[in-house]
Every structure is written in structure tokens, then in C-alpha cells.
Amino acid sequence: MKEVNYIIECLERTPLILQSLLNQIPEGLFKIRRVKHKWSIHEQVCHLVEAQDILTGRFKQFKNEPFPQIKSYSPPSAENYYLEMDMNSALTKFPEIRKGMVKMLRGFEDNYWTLDGEHNLYLPYNTKLLLSHTLNVDYAHLFSIEQLGLTKLGFEEGIITIP
């Protein structure tokens, strides 16, 4: 289970990496949607923190249900849903939320990491894929935040970001 432990260690570090990245970005850029129809840094952060409950719930489903049926998540469609959230409050909560997730993940027995389920968008779907997906979500949002916050003004057409 070496790969499982490695991914969990990476997940444990995300809150520190996120805060370090945000410290490098001028606060004036946080709420600006630099790319049309894409989220701002503020929205990226608030979504990342909010998604932790969904991801934790999926891990629990695997523990509590044989062959769980996982449905994809679509963020709320309200135009300013994440912009209206308090990003500083989300950032304050994130380390504790992630600490709880990491504790839960480390508490699973080795056989937990062999469980299969079904996801309406992914094939196959299992606990190891959910674990790596959780880390990929972190990385995707960190990359989007970096692109939105550190790309020089005037070069927005080169920014790569998720929603």
C-alpha cells in the first residue's frame, strides 16, 4: 500500500501548498474572472474547500455500502455562488477538514483499498481511483489558481483553468 500512503501524504500537504501559493498572488486578483466563463481564484478556493465534504462522503460510501453507486457532482449553477462565500473562512477551515480526511484515510484497513464501486462518469471506479481523483482535484485547482494569479496581465488568452 505504498502508493496509497504516498497519495495520502500529498493530500495532507495541500492546505499548506495552497496557502503558500495564495501568498504569492496579489489579493486584488482573487475575485477577478480573468477568463470569460471561468472561475476566479476566490471561486476556485471556495469550491475546493466545499468539495471536501463530497469527497469524504464518497470514501464513507465505499466503507458502508457494498459496490456503491457514485453520482457525479455538478457545482451550483448560481452565477455568484462561490463569489459570495467567505474565502478566508474557507481557508481557515480547510486544514482541519483535510486533517480529518487524512485521519479517516489512514484508518482504513488494507482491504479497503481493493473495493470497487460504480460511477456514472468513470470506468472503472474504486477506492484507489477515488484517492488519486481527490489528489488530482487538488492539483487541478492549484494549477488553475497559479495560472489565474501569476500569469501577467494582458496574457489571459494563454491561461489554462478549470471551470
Results as ranks from 00 to 15, higher is better:
residue 93 K to I: 01
residue 69 Q to I: 10
residue 34 R to G: 08
residue 4 V to D: 04
residue 115 L to D: 07
residue 75 P to D: 08
residue 76 P to G: 09
residue 129 L to P: 04
residue 108 F to G: 01
residue 140 A to G: 07
residue 160 I to F: 13
residue 161 T to Q: 13
residue 79 E to M: 02
residue 30 F to H: 09
residue 107 G to K: 07
residue 150 L to R: 11
residue 65 E to D: 07
residue 80 N to Y: 07
residue 136 N to D: 10
residue 92 T to W: 10
residue 73 Y to Q: 01
residue 125 Y to N: 06
residue 141 H to E: 03
residue 17 I to R: 10
residue 77 S to A: 14
residue 158 G to T: 09
residue 120 N to I: 04
residue 86 D to A: 03
residue 12 E to P: 01
residue 97 I to Q: 08
residue 3 E to W: 10
residue 48 L to P: 00
residue 158 G to C: 05
residue 25 I to H: 07
residue 129 L to D: 11
residue 9 E to Q: 14
residue 96 E to W: 00
residue 146 E to I: 00
residue 120 N to T: 06
residue 1 M to R: 13
residue 3 E to P: 15
residue 8 I to C: 02
residue 143 F to Y: 11
residue 66 P to A: 12
residue 154 G to C: 13
residue 77 S to K: 15
residue 85 M to A: 04
residue 83 L to I: 03
residue 68 P to M: 05
residue 71 K to Q: 10
residue 72 S to F: 10
residue 71 K to R: 12
residue 4 V to K: 03
residue 99 K to R: 15
residue 112 Y to V: 07
residue 17 I to C: 03
residue 37 H to M: 12
residue 42 H to I: 04
residue 63 K to C: 10
residue 149 G to T: 07
residue 135 L to C: 01
residue 85 M to V: 00
residue 141 H to L: 00
residue 133 H to M: 11
residue 81 Y to H: 09
residue 117 G to D: 07
residue 111 N to E: 15
residue 124 P to G: 10
residue 25 I to S: 06
residue 12 E to W: 00
residue 106 R to L: 06
residue 160 I to E: 14
residue 140 A to H: 11
residue 115 L to T: 07
residue 97 I to H: 02
residue 79 E to L: 04
residue 39 W to D: 06
residue 11 L to W: 00
residue 34 R to Q: 12
residue 56 T to K: 10
residue 141 H to W: 03
residue 106 R to Y: 04
residue 2 K to L: 13
residue 143 F to D: 11
residue 61 Q to H: 11
residue 23 N to C: 04
residue 32 I to M: 14
residue 149 G to W: 02
residue 45 V to D: 01
residue 122 Y to A: 08
residue 45 V to T: 02
residue 57 G to N: 07
residue 121 L to E: 14
residue 102 V to C: 02
residue 68 P to F: 02
residue 4 V to R: 08
residue 87 M to P: 00
residue 121 L to M: 11
residue 99 K to F: 09
residue 34 R to P: 06
residue 26 P to C: 03
residue 45 V to F: 06
residue 34 R to T: 06
residue 65 E to Q: 08
residue 126 N to Q: 10
residue 10 C to F: 08
residue 163 P to T: 14
residue 85 M to K: 12
residue 82 Y to C: 04
residue 91 L to G: 06
residue 22 L to G: 01
residue 66 P to H: 09
residue 49 V to H: 02
residue 104 M to I: 09
residue 45 V to A: 01
residue 52 Q to T: 05
residue 131 L to H: 03
residue 95 P to F: 05
residue 140 A to Q: 13
residue 43 E to L: 04
residue 138 D to R: 03
residue 139 Y to T: 13
residue 133 H to K: 08
residue 143 F to N: 13
residue 144 S to T: 11
residue 2 K to P: 00
residue 117 G to L: 02
residue 136 N to I: 04
residue 142 L to N: 05
residue 59 F to N: 05
residue 108 F to Y: 14
residue 17 I to L: 12
residue 155 F to W: 12
residue 149 G to M: 03
residue 114 T to L: 14
residue 17 I to S: 05
residue 116 D to R: 14
residue 48 L to F: 06
residue 7 I to V: 15
residue 136 N to Q: 13
residue 117 G to I: 00
residue 77 S to M: 12
residue 92 T to F: 10
residue 95 P to Y: 03
residue 161 T to S: 15
